[in-house]
Design a binder for these strands. Structure first.
Length: 568
RNA sequence: CGGGGCGUGGCUCAGCCUGGUAGAGCGCCUGGUUCGGGACCAGGAGGCCGGUGGUUCGAAUCCACUCGCCCCGACCA
């Protein structure tokens, strides 16, 4: 293609609205333009990259026997009511009405539609297993779209669904996806981690996320510095750090003391001269309308995910101040577990075996010292605590680190959630009706591009892996009005095409600086530059990432570049 | 939804406090000189100052409302 004929609107300066690097570069390099908050147009360059990514995705999905389909994005609300997600998804689901007042919604994932197809046609175990997938736009009414293409309201997802006869079959389908995902992300040139994940609103048992470390990410990955343990923060477990002060010895009874105006853990640490690790933090939550008192060590934070699985709540929220006063007779700064009878009391494992700690007295401006779990109150123990950096790995004791990351893929064992609610059953060998077991598997296509940019960029722009770059190579005559350069460049460009390279010919009558800057910004992995050395038959081949330049005979330049690009 | 910031040619921004002719750099167009890392000279085009209402002789500027975008939080397969 001829650069002079293409629409590649590069910008010299970063648009003011872009904060994260991938967003800035996608705009500057002319890949995307914004239409509204969280809604973007993908221009020529972005579309080329995305097509390369989806091609890789297709090849690897097809390789595990998955069948590509294309389902509607517009769904009848009725279908979502069947699975129960019409209510669960709340405002995140785009909802609309047609001219007759029928309720519709835009798909955020397509378990319902896939399940409805399956239940209409599947009759026998002999038809299973099946893996169906599509690459299609998804819609989510995000409360806060952000970071360019990282969190948007319309995006392209590869979503796959597996249908199996039993749990062993699901394991096979799940493992196939696990491996296919690794191949996809490897081929896209990404550095990524696979972490244990929480299955969240999707339901189901096992789940893994594919994460790319990046400060632009919104998730935290907990990783052991020694072994291979890695998990999403929501799910991660670890040994807590030791308390900073030993518990006082002895079999003491709770003793009230006056703590005027001391409300936070911090206040109390200063006031009592005891570290936060000697305190019990008391949190009141309303879980499905019922109050629960959750206790964690003073320096720990409650993991909301772990809390909700511990109490098996569909919905929960922090209690309102009025509710707290009504239930405890005291305000939030002075709450504690001693004497609490009117609600469930759950405690984090880190409190088990501790003695003589500080807790609120359920009386404003008063606290208790010498509070001992299992003596002064009897909680149910759970892992409730959010893991923190510096904790010790459960597997090997190594130090835990926290890494910010972008989620690019997620695989779930759904189990029977949809087949049960929507009635997907087949007959087994014995002629008995059995539920089909399902899995679902997603990849965020734009996130692969964004993550690649976050991973590979420098001050001049993108340094994309060839697999996802819009072009493999750009042929750049330094002076286009020089007839010798022009014709030699044309020849090299044609040779590149013959070798199957995705080549672009920068035939613009621009100064060399402009052409070099644009090529760097756009992130084309290789550049063949024709300049003064052409008089001796030599051209330069420049590597975008390393900026290393090699002189090559013009006859071999195309083959030289082709050899550098991995076969695909 | 709570908190903060910002809306002025295509892009980055100044002007607003203290009301009176709408500006700069880059980009764009024409001509010329140039040609190895975003050239130079000359000429030129391009702006309902986000919108509505108000105050005023007069509003980009002051006031009210409103819309949009970004960031933090809440939220989130």
């Amino acid at each position: 293609m001829l650069w002079s004929k293409l629409f590649i609107p590069t910008l010299r300066e970063n648009p003011a609205e872009a904060e994260v690097v991938s967003h800035q570069l996608l705009l500057r390099a002319g890949y995307i333009r914004q239409l509204a908050a969280g809604i973007y147009s993908y221009l020529f360059l972005a579309q080329r990259s995305l097509l390369k990514i989806t091609k890789i995705v297709r090849e690897e999905m097809d390789a595990i026997g998955a069948q590509e389909m294309l389902l509607p994005a517009l769904h009848p609300a009725e279908l979502w009511r069947e699975s129960g997600r019409y209510e669960i998804m709340g405002d995140n689901l785009f909802r609309l009405k047609d001219r007759f007042g029928r309720e519709l919604c835009l798909g955020m994932t397509e378990e319902e539609v896939m399940t409805s197809i399956a239940r209409g046609e599947m009759r026998s175990y002999k038809q299973l297993p099946q893996i169906w997938y599509q690459i299609q736009s998804k819609f989510r009414d995000e409360p806060r779209p952000k970071s360019g293409l990282l969190r948007v309201r319309q995006f392209i997802m590869k979503d796959a669904y597996s249908f199996d006869i039993d749990a062993a079959g699901l394991d096979v389908s799940y493992d196939k996806h696990y491996e296919a995902y690794c191949k996809i992300f490897d081929r896209c040139g990404l550095k990524y981690m696979v972490v244990e994940a929480h299955s969240g609103a999707m339901g189901g048992s096992q789940s893994h996320e594919f994460m790319v470390a990046s400060d632009a990410g919104e998730d935290y990955v907990v990783r052991c510095s020694k072994c291979d343990y890695a998990a999403n923060l929501e799910k991660a477990a670890a040994h807590p750090s030791a308390p900073l002060a030993d518990d006082p010895e002895g079999d003491r009874s709770p003793e009230e003391f006056h703590t005027p105006g001391q409300k936070t853990i911090d206040d109390l640490s200063k006031f009592t001269k005891l570290p936060a690790t000697s305190q019990i933090k008391s949190l009141v939550l309303m879980a499905d309308g019922k109050p629960v008192l959750a206790l964690v060590r003073g320096d720990h934070s409650l993991s909301e995910t772990k809390f909700s699985s511990a109490v098996k709540a569909v919905e929960f929220r922090p209690a309102h101040p009025e509710e707290i006063v009504k239930l405890f007779g005291a305000e939030a700064g002075s709450l504690g577990p001693v004497g609490v009878k009117n609600m469930r009391v759950i405690a984090d494992e880190a409190l088990r075996g501790r003695r003589n700690m500080i807790a609120g007295a359920n009386k404003d401006d008063h606290h208790l010292r010498h509070v001992t779990p299992d003596e002064d109150f009897n909680p149910e123990y759970f892992d409730l605590r959010q893991v923190a950096a510096g904790d010790a790995c459960l597997k090997c004791g190594g130090a835990i680190e926290l890494i910010k990351a972008v989620e690019i893929g997620h695989i779930f064992k759904l189990g029977y959630r949809y087949s049960e609610s929507m009635g997907l059953r087949v007959l087994n060998e014995a002629g008995e009706e059995i539920k089909v077991i399902m899995g679902s598997y997603g990849i965020g296509v734009e996130r692969i591009l964004s993550a690649a940019i976050e991973l590979y960029h420098d001050k001049d722009g993108m340094a994309l892996p060839a697999a996802v770059a819009p072009f493999d190579v750009v042929v750049t005559p330094v002076n286009y009005s020089d007839a010798a350069q022009r014709s030699a460049a044309e020849e090299i460009y044609q040779s590149c095409l013959k070798l199957g390279l995705d080549a672009i010919f920068d035939d613009r009558d621009e100064r060399p600086g402009v052409k070099f800057k644009d090529a760097d910004l756009v992130g084309i992995p290789h550049r063949i530059t024709l300049g003064k050395k052409l008089t001796t038959g030599m051209v330069e081949v420049v590597d975008r990432r390393t900026k290393a330049s090699e002189d090559v005979d013009k006859e071999y330049a195309a083959a030289f570049v082709a050899a550098k690009i991995e076969p695909r």
